[in-house]
């Protein structure tokens, strides 16, 4: 396998990691706010904050990791996306800043402040929406290179049905992934009341993820037929994704094995995400940037891979420690520690 492909796969894996952990995080913030409004917060919110408090900072790193790695491996992306994404990127940054800091303000500072909770809960839903525009732009048609100048057509993006279907999918997925995870977490904590509320959320948001995915397929067909046809070549990957979805949803519906159900939710998104990514290759930005044209020089590529492996050797044991202390420690989850 080419080193370019290895680099992109690794980065894609990190983006997938971000997709899962950030979805849990963003959705949890929204549910915490929603429950507060419905005055059910005493049932759910302590559970949510027990999970989120030790991990929120780690979530953010996945994202930083992805974009630093992307620019490192493929410096041309900085040039194209950097120029085009000034406005959407800045808005995403502002949302991310509001969310991160108000999480801390609300959780460590003023616990009862509804404004803080509102800002932190609702900004979480807009972030996936604003990030998903990057994926839309990567399909081409929104950026044009004229001479040395990169021009970004914000109005085209705004009017594109494909773009909106991706936004819709992003928001729905966040709520589904998050609810599925929190149901499992509540179940581990033997917190029946919280589990029932969260289970309802998970079931409520499960059909829309499939509807939204179909919309995205339809939208892509209109927008980028070549990519759509390549996706059809990977139909079996998306088939796996759908099967995983069915397994997950039915387990949650039958109130059985919530942990396994969440693993299947992760697999559902894993297949969909990698199917999408594989069919998108070799383009990073259709038609200007491919993983081959944008690749950094050989020396740097190898250095990055070495550092990457060394870094993982450091990170994986640390992450395992974090998860053992807070995720798989039954007493902590139940609130006894």
């Amino acid at each position: 396998m080419d080193i370019q492909l290895v680099g992109m796969t690794v980065l894609w894996l990190f983006l997938y990691g971000y997709l899962i952990v950030a979805s849990i995080d963003f959705g949890a913030g929204f549910f915490a706010y929603y429950c507060k409004m419905k005055k059910q917060d005493h049932l759910v919110n302590h559970l949510i904050s027990r999970y989120l408090s030790p991990v929120w900072e780690v979530t953010n790193v996945f994202l930083v990791f992805f974009f630093v790695g992307l620019v490192g491996f493929f410096p041309d992306t900085a040039y194209y996306y950097g120029t085009a994404l000034l406005i959407p990127g800045s808005i995403a940054l502002v949302l991310l800043s509001i969310r991160g800091s108000f999480y801390a303000f609300a959780n460590y500072g003023s616990k009862e402040n509804k404004v803080y909770l509102f800002l932190y809960g609702v900004s979480g839903l807009f972030i996936p929406a604003s990030f998903s525009t990057v994926l839309t732009i990567s399909e081409g048609g929104f950026i044009e290179k004229r001479g040395e100048e990169i021009i970004f057509f914000a109005d085209r993006l705004f009017k594109s049905p494909y773009s909106w279907s991706v936004v819709f999918l992003a928001i729905v997925s966040v709520l589904f992934i998050s609810a599925a995870f929190l149901t499992y977490y509540a179940d581990r904590a033997n917190d029946e009341q919280a589990r029932e509320i969260l289970r309802k959320y998970a079931l409520f948001w499960s059909p829309p993820t499939i509807i939204a995915s179909l919309l995205v397929f339809a939208g892509l067909r209109e927008h980028n037929i070549a990519h759509f046809e390549k996706m059809l070549m990977y139909w079996w990957v998306f088939g796996f994704s759908f099967i995983c979805f069915l397994v997950a949803s039915s387990l949650i519906y039958q109130r059985k094995r919530y942990g396994t159900a969440f693993v299947f939710v992760m697999l559902q998104f894993f297949f969909a995400f990698f199917g999408y990514g594989a069919s998108h290759l070799p383009y990073i930005l259709d038609p200007y940037v491919t993983i081959y044209s944008a690749y950094t020089n050989e020396t740097m590529g190898i250095a990055l891979v070495i550092v990457f492996i060394a870094g993982l050797l450091l990170l994986i044991p640390s992450l395992v420690l974090l998860m053992r202390l807070f995720l798989f420690d039954a007493d902590y989850v139940k609130g006894k520690k």
């Binding site: 408090s53 030790p54 991990v55 900072e57 780690v58 490192g72 250095a303 450091l314 990170l315 202390l325």
Partner: peptide, 23 residues
């Protein structure tokens, strides 16, 4: 990109242990 990448690793490391330390 090499030092930038290493910086994120260091940051990652810190983030994990800060979470553990706090709780």
């Amino acid at each position: 990109s090499l030092p930038l990448f290493m910086e994120t690793f260091a940051f990652f490391f810190e983030a994990i242990f800060l979470g553990i330390y706090l709780y």
